[in-house]
Design a protein around this nucleic acid. Structure first.
Length: 704
DNA sequence: AGCTTTCAACTTTTT
DNA sequence: GTTGAAAGCT
């Protein structure tokens, strides 16, 4: 609860929040500092827009609130529900940029030649297409292309434009691969994540009737995390709201940390120019952190050049000073951090006996720059028997082999799930390549049917070779057959038999060993597969369980019924923020979250700010790293520890590590009440103890 | 030379 | 936990 909900929210809004909510008649930019109650402003503003009155009186369907993550969208919908009721909240268009794109394309994308059931490829799908299109087996190379192509697309370039402006040989190759990739996507009737922004933009730009339709429908658009928008998202918003469109953009230039993904602060700079009647409202009161923490945050961020002036303050009191910590090396740092948490918790247990909310482990978080830094902390926490979770990281369901099998199960469930079809039909390889799939995709697009449906069509025969057609039919028949059996098979034992038979039929084990250079890795993958099968089978029930002396048989379910719950579980895995465990997280993944007690770890030059080799790092990069530090500091509510390494492992020996410049920038020695030299403090404590002892001795003497 | 094994290094990743 | 590189072995 403490790790993702808002801090103690005030009963009423402060003047700045109120101004943001009441401003209805022109575009509005709300500069929401960390912990300043921006979600509250957005939801309150939605409620205000629905109220009858000047500039308002909108219907729920005329309001769109756009976020970056599904999680943020879900949270906003929850908050809106609580405020305006489930019925009205249900009609609001609250969604991510990408799902808005899906909506636009499904409704009106046909004029771009896209069938309404187009597939959306995930990042793995894209990598494998690029590997194929670029004629390489090197996944790293493919990911490099993917990266480059994505940046181009986010800046509105197609392959031809990319080629004409390509600087290096690498970029030229990437642009050529991009061309093949574009052709492949068109043939598959598939889009990638970037297309979910780029294609709707094209749609609105080139088709006036569609543009007018959406501009008429959406009377007010609210955008969350505005500082994270990229060039195409900016253009999309512009077209969505129209020339005199009214919108509310909520963001914080100081928390812009996704520049490397194409997000650009230009979008904030351009806003006052593109909309001269823009009203800028800063939210500076912070409801999260103590003054000591905010002072450090303000000092750090003050070093950056400012787009808009803004200084956070809070009335939560001075609080504990920010604690500087040191570790001899990574392991030592981890041990000290864990000891620090244990001591803190011990104090809390004394101060708040019987208040588990204040002493629970989910009040604690360790934040760091890069994923690999989690490892020593995991070890130290495990050693101390403290429960933890590493946020981010690859989940079981993200593993390629599990995704393969899930694609099959998804296809059984819904034959029209084209991404699942594409994955299943090509994994393991069964002689159906992109030529065949291209033809099939074209055919399906023409007749507006799913790939699976198209496969059985009589008229498909005309456009495919006999061999290809047979391959497709074999596959289709097998899926139908398997689906039939999966519906009939109840209970874990039978399910396991069926699923193992399936793996044998599609030769999945062979596929793993064929495609993996390293046999050990293949074996590990196969183990994952078997674990997955066991997991599915167990959920099919029918087990005899000993329940308090009684033997009970759990309810039997079919494989199909279980398959239906799988996609729910993958998304459910993200919703376990309430577990009572310490959080380990990257700074990036921590944005938007908060904890009472935070330690920033490994705050050294080279890590934060990150630099590859000494020297080469641009001022812009430093500024983004500084914002990252700022984000980290402002995650803490009550106590903050900032830990730096003295030495760090390099090869076999240790080398000197330099504390981050950001530590000095916090100016911890300035302000914050009278402070005492620690040696002086120790001397004073000794004197007090001695005086007490003497007094006790005197009293005892007097008693005699 | 070609193979295996060990060792160190590792940005950040909303969709 | 994964991957590439370098050292070591046949």
């Amino acid at each position: 609860m403490s790790s993702h909900s808002a801090s103690a929210a005030p009963a009423t809004m402060n003047p700045a929040q109120m101004a943001a909510v009441q401003h209805l008649d022109s575009p509005c930019l709300v500069l929401a500092g960390a912990g300043s109650g921006k979600t509250r402003v957005i939801t309150q503003k939605i409620a205000r827009l629905l109220q009858p009155g000047e500039g308002a009186d909108l219907a729920p369907a005329q309001i769109a609130a756009i976020t970056f993550t599904n999680k943020a969208a879900a949270e906003m919908r929850d908050r809106a529900k609580a405020l305006i009721g489930a019925k009205a909240a249900g009609k609001l268009l609250i969604c991510t940029f990408h799902s808005l794109g899906v909506r636009l394309l499904r409704d009106d994308g046909e004029v771009l030649g896209l069938k309404p059931q187009f597939s959306i490829l995930d990042s793995d799908d894209v990598t494998s297409i690029l590997r194929d299109a670029g004629g390489t087996t090197d996944a790293k190379q493919a990911r490099n292309w993917q990266w480059t192509i994505s940046l181009w697309k986010n800046n509105g370039l197609n392959s031809a434009q990319a080629l004409s402006q390509a600087q290096s040989d690498d970029e030229q190759v990437a642009a050529r691969v991009m061309k093949l990739y574009e052709e492949r996507l068109a043939a598959y009737q598939a889009v990638d994540f970037d297309d979910l922004i780029g294609l709707p933009l094209k749609l609105l730009a080139e088709h006036e009737s569609v543009r007018m339709k959406w501009q008429r429908q959406l009377r007010h658009v609210l955008v969350d995390e505005y500082q994270d928008t990229n060039a195409t998202q900016y253009e999309l918003l512009k077209l969505l709201v129209g020339p005199q469109g009214i919108f509310t953009a909520v963001g914080d230039d100081d928390q812009s940390i996704y520049g490397w993904r194409g997000a650009t602060l230009d979008n904030l700079k351009k806003l006052p120019q593109d909309y001269p009647n823009l009203k800028v409202i800063p939210l500076e009161q912070n409801y999260r952190s103590t003054s000591a923490i905010l002072r450090a945050a303000n000092h750090v961020i003050a070093t950056n050049p400012k787009l808009f002036q803004k200084t956070l303050w809070s009335d939560l009191g001075e609080g504990a000073p920010v604690k500087l910590m040191e570790g001899d090396n990574e392991e030592h740092e981890a041990e000290r951090t864990v000891a620090h948490f244990m001591a803190l918790r011990m104090n809390l247990l004394e101060k708040h006996p019987g208040d588990p909310d204040k002493t629970a482990w989910n009040n604690f978080a360790i934040l760091y720059r890069a994923n690999h830094q989690a490892r020593p902390f995991e070890q130290a926490l495990r050693k101390a028997n403290i429960p933890y979770k590493v946020s981010g990281g690859q989940s079981f369901f993200d593993k390629a082999e599990i995704k393969d099998l899930c694609a099959w199960l998804r296809l059984l469930l819904n034959n029209d799930d084209d991404p699942a079809f594409l994955r299943a039909v090509t994994t393991p390889k069964r002689g159906i390549g992109h030529q065949t799939l291209g033809t099939l995709g074209e055919f399906a697009g023409k007749w507006k049917v799913s790939l699976f449906e198209a496969l059985f069509s009589e008229s498909l025969a005309a456009s495919l070779s006999k061999r290809a057609l047979e391959g497709l039919h074999d596959f289709g028949r097998y899926v139908n057959d398997f689906e039939y059996k999966a519906r009939q098979t109840y209970g874990g034992e039978d399910a396991k038999v069926l699923l193992l038979e399936w793996l044998k039929d599609i030769e999945y084990e062979k596929h793993l060993y064929d495609n993996e250079e390293n046999e050990k890795v293949a074996a590990a993958r196969w183990t994952n597969v078997l674990d997955f099968i066991d997991w599915v089978a167990k959920r099919c029930g029918g087990e005899i369980e000993n329940d308090g002396g009684m033997t009970v048989e759990t309810e039997k379910k079919s494989v199909i019924e279980v398959a239906q719950t799988i996609s729910l579980i993958t998304s459910l895995a993200e919703r376990n923020a309430d577990q009572n465990v310490v959080t380990l997280s990257t700074l990036h993944a921590s944005k938007g979250l908060e904890w009472p007690h935070v330690v920033l770890a490994g705050v050294n030059e080279g890590s934060l700010p990150f630099s590859r080799e000494e020297g080469e790092i641009t001022p812009q990069q430093i500024e983004e790293e500084r914002r990252l530090m700022y984000v980290g500091i402002t995650r803490a509510r009550l106590t903050l520890g900032v830990s730096a390494l003295k030495r760090r492992k390099k090869g076999r020996e240790y080398v000197q590590a330099i504390p981050s410049r950001f530590i000095a920038e916090m100016k911890l020695s300035e302000g914050g009440g009278p402070k005492e030299d620690p040696r002086e403090k120790l001397r004073r404590q000794r004197e007090e103890l001695a005086a007490k002892a003497k007094a006790a001795a005197d009293a005892a003497k007097a008693h005699l």
